[in-house]
Design a binder for these strands. Structure first.
Length: 489
RNA sequence: GGUCGGUUGACCGAGUGGCCAGGUAGCGGUCUGCAAAACCGUGUACGGCGGUUCGACUCCGCCACCGACCUCCA
């Protein structure tokens, strides 16, 4: 299968041609959310970034297996010994079963992803459903001597691993520096070294989510699930692993170490990391308390929001920046995105009105070529959009008669726009589906006020015409003492 | 403190050793009963100081500022 896609590999820090291991198949694993709270704008970034990748690979004809997990257990709040499971903590706060928390926020996540027109992954495995696989991985690591057990907990032996492999190669860490910079150790630390990380944790008696294991009643460490599940569904070695830059260390570094130690081969051929969304120049994160949830963005219900922004505005806003750059949230930027988005969508209506000319004054093939060059260059969506806006200008000019399009070019252009805007960028036209009650109500107010103007001027033929025409389409007007009311049949 | 990244016009945001990013906003014009849309035109943008070069926003050095990671985070 032919492709000219180049992607930036975080492991080598270089753009590399994408050559899948087993064409026509391509495997992608992306770290999904820990479902203990509402989905926020930051979550939209990786979802949309890797949705773009997924869609483009599908467009190229690959049979893609896209695995995006749900973390529903084992994600500790801070250092392994002191930490509390995020989900357990929230469950206690909300007086719910842990699995009720998981269900609640997973549903929110899924709904928001659908609103953003993010395609469902091929497989969405949950950590709690893969305890056995995680235990098998722990056993394998123990057997190979890369892990050790202390008091029913099992830790990964980073020093031992570093003898045969190189710990820190993904994040650019050097072990000695990690040793020098690690923060103060807790007194009763069971780990041989502070940078060792938990594979299996023995649960305290009050811990609700726990499973039997050869070592203790306990639960798996956070990094383990991604190794176990990517391995299960994509194999020991797979093509692409994605996630946010903030996961590069320690999460992905640990994952890389575990998988490499267990199987003796490096698990991932291309690591891809999306950058963060910032707010006032600072990373937007739940832990920093400066996040805006997607539902708040869609409704406008947040002190920082001047208005509501539609899901496609958010999607467009994210696609207008390259995924490896930070993008700063502001009302001004969102409003600009909203306008740009509308302009792009309007072109789909305009193109239908264009009459084919005998000859074209523009070169559609050249635009197509540029579009593919942009997306092939490490998914450069902003450049792609700039070429699509060139196409929009051509469409508008052709409708104005200042450019001409022959019938075949016109068809090509329509096709090009459809492929890139809808299929690959995953945008969709929102206005078509927006026939809601609010609009009807506004329209009725306008009609009623026009009729009032006519009646005030004693133009009764006009006011009666309005009433009878409305009647004809099933709307009844009633002139009550309190004013005009209307109802539908 | 360590590691890495950024600083682009009113705002957002690409990119490149010499030529146009694109979007939004502004200004002028065409069109239009008015408005909107659309189209055309328009802005001496590249943090500071040096250096390399025929030529640097783009390469190198230093400085300043901002941020990310080093603990959980998409």
């Amino acid at each position: 299968m032919q492709n000219n896609l180049h992607i930036f590999n975080s492991l080598t820090k270089k753009k590399e041609p994408f050559k899948p291991l087993h064409p026509p198949f391509a495997g992608i694993y992306v770290c999904g959310p820990t479902v203990y709270s509402d989905t926020h704008l930051g979550h939209a970034r990786p979802a949309i970034t890797f949705d773009l990748l997924f869609r483009y690979l599908l467009h190229l004809g690959y049979k893609v297996r896209y695995v995006r997990n749900i973390t529903d257990v084992g994600h500790l709040e801070n250092d392994a010994d002191e930490g509390e499971d995020k989900i357990l903590k929230k469950a206690r706060l909300e007086h719910l079963e842990p699995m009720e928390i998981v269900q609640k926020y997973m549903d929110v996540y899924h709904r928001n992803m659908q609103q953003l027109n993010v395609l469902n992954p091929s497989i969405e495995p949950r950590a709690s459903g893969h305890i056995i696989e995680q235990q098998e991985l722990v056993a394998e690591l123990l057997k190979k001597g890369y892990a050790y057990e202390v008091n029913g907990s099992v830790y990964f032996d980073v020093l031992k691993y570093n003898e045969s492999y190189k710990y820190g190669k993904l994040s650019g860490r050097v072990l000695e520096e990690l040793q020098a910079n690690t923060r103060s150790l807790e007194g009763q630390d069971e780990k041989k070294n502070p940078y060792d990380f938990a594979l299996w944790k023995k649960a305290s008696p009050e811990h609700i989510m726990k499973w039997p294991s050869p070592w203790s009643y306990g639960f798996p460490g956070w990094h383990l699930e991604c190794s176990a599940m990517s391995n299960k569904y994509l194999g020991d070695v797979f093509d692409i692993h994605g996630g946010g830059m903030d996961l590069q260390f320690p999460h992905h570094e640990c994952e890389l170490a575990q998988s490499t130690a267990a199987h003796g081969v490096e698990p991932v051929r291309y690591w891809m990391h999306n950058n963060m969304i910032t707010i006032n120049g600072q990373k937007m994160a739940r832990s920093l308390g400066n996040f805006i949830t997607l539902d708040q963005l869609f409704s406008g219900d947040h002190p920082l929001l001047q208005q509501a922004y539609s899901p496609m505005t958010i999607r467009f806003f994210i696609l207008q920046a390259h995924y490896r750059s930070t993008v700063d949230f502001s009302n001004e930027a969102l409003q600009a995105a909203e306008k740009g988005m509308q302009k792009l969508m309007k072109a789909f209506e305009t193109i239908e009105k264009i009459k084919a000319a005998p000859k074209s004054s523009v070169d559609i093939d050249a635009i197509r070529k540029k579009c593919y060059e942009a997306i092939d260059d490490d998914l450069n969506s902003p450049i792609l959009l700039s070429h699509l806006f060139d196409a929009v200008r051509i469409i508008n000019s052709a409708a104005d008669g200042t450019e001409t399009l022959a019938a075949d070019d016109l068809a090509d252009l329509k096709n090009l726009m459809n492929i890139f805007v809808f299929e690959i960028l995953g945008l969709k036209n929102e206005s078509a589906s927006g026939n809601d009650e609010a609009l009807t109500s506004e329209l009725m107010n306008i009609i009623i006020s026009l009729r009032k103007d006519a009646r005030d001027k004693k133009d009764f033929p006009t006011s009666d015409k309005i009433r009878s025409e409305l009647n004809r389409i099933g709307i009844t007007l009633k002139d009550t003492k309190e004013g005009v009311e209307w109802e539908r049949d």
